[in-house]
Computed example of a mutant assay.
Amino acid sequence: MTARPALEIAVTSPAGARTARENGADRVELCTALELGGLTPSAALVEAVAAEGLPVHVLVRCRPGDFVHDAEEIALMVAEVRSAIASGAAGVVIGALTADGALDTVAVARLAEAARAAGRPVDVTLHRAIDQSADPVATAALLPSLGLTRVLTSGGAPVAADGRAAIAAMVTAAPGVQVMAGGGMRPADIPALASAGVASVHLSAKARAPRRLDGTWIPLGAGGASAEQDTHFVTDPEVVAQARRALDAVG
């Protein structure tokens, strides 16, 4: 019998990790700047979230934007991988592309090697750089040879629900690699994606944090965002709970 998919929630804080744990998540992916697609968290944040008890997979992405990284950025992310694992991460989430949209296998292998150097079992996930690649299914097929254990993907579509066919193809193309569906995921999408053979589903389950500062808001960014827009996201307990119920209903 095929195992029921696991539930991973993207969080940015210890409070988010507690919300995820209390509402049925199996693990969390930790990042900062979720509104930018996620960036590498600090070592102190990794330690604090790991103390909440769920396995923590740390996103290692040194800047927003494309996934084409130069040598200096790769060296920085290698150091971030080592720092995350030393701080208690159960896994890291990595990735890099070449300018023509191919997987940067040299960079990915270097990041994976840094993770394995910890001397203990560590999960290594390819992040959604795969969805920006020229051929996501062919990219997935490269992962077993690189020693990666998981891939997070929307199947190259804007949202995972629309990439179901490609996600199913990745499951076939990358034996031994856990395919995790994520990207615009809603609890209602879970049954269809589970039937595609995914090993896990990934949701940000995010809501805008409420404004707590009284008085006039002075925009801090170049875009002149309002107080409602210039905020951060928190983990919504009801969305996590809905996703847990949807997974539990999968036969």
Score class of each variant (00 low, 15 high):
29 E>V: 07
30 L>V: 13
31 C>I: 11
32 T>K: 10
33 A>L: 09
33 A>C: 14
33 A>V: 11
34 L>C: 11
36 L>Q: 12
37 G>K: 09
37 G>D: 13
37 G>H: 10
38 G>A: 14
39 L>W: 06
39 L>Y: 08
40 T>Y: 01
44 A>L: 14
45 L>V: 09
46 V>R: 00
47 E>N: 07
48 A>R: 10
50 A>W: 04
56 V>L: 12
56 V>C: 13
57 H>M: 14
58 V>M: 08
59 L>N: 03
59 L>E: 04
60 V>D: 00
61 R>T: 04
61 R>E: 03
61 R>V: 03
62 C>T: 11
65 G>I: 08
65 G>R: 01
66 D>F: 00
66 D>L: 01
67 F>P: 00
67 F>V: 02
68 V>I: 08
68 V>H: 00
70 D>G: 15
70 D>P: 07
71 A>D: 12
71 A>T: 12
71 A>C: 04
75 A>M: 10
77 M>Q: 05
77 M>R: 00
82 R>E: 15
85 I>K: 00
85 I>G: 00
86 A>T: 14
90 A>K: 03
90 A>G: 11
91 G>V: 06
91 G>K: 05
92 V>N: 03
92 V>A: 09
96 A>W: 00
97 L>G: 02
98 T>H: 05
98 T>C: 05
98 T>P: 06
100 D>F: 07
100 D>W: 04
104 D>H: 02
105 T>Q: 14
107 A>W: 01
109 A>V: 05
109 A>D: 08
109 A>R: 07
113 E>D: 15
115 A>T: 04
116 R>S: 14
119 G>C: 10
120 R>E: 14
120 R>A: 13
121 P>D: 09
122 V>A: 02
124 V>P: 00
124 V>H: 01
124 V>D: 03
125 T>E: 09
126 L>T: 06
126 L>F: 14
127 H>M: 12
127 H>E: 08
127 H>A: 06
128 R>G: 12
131 D>R: 06
132 Q>P: 00
133 S>T: 13
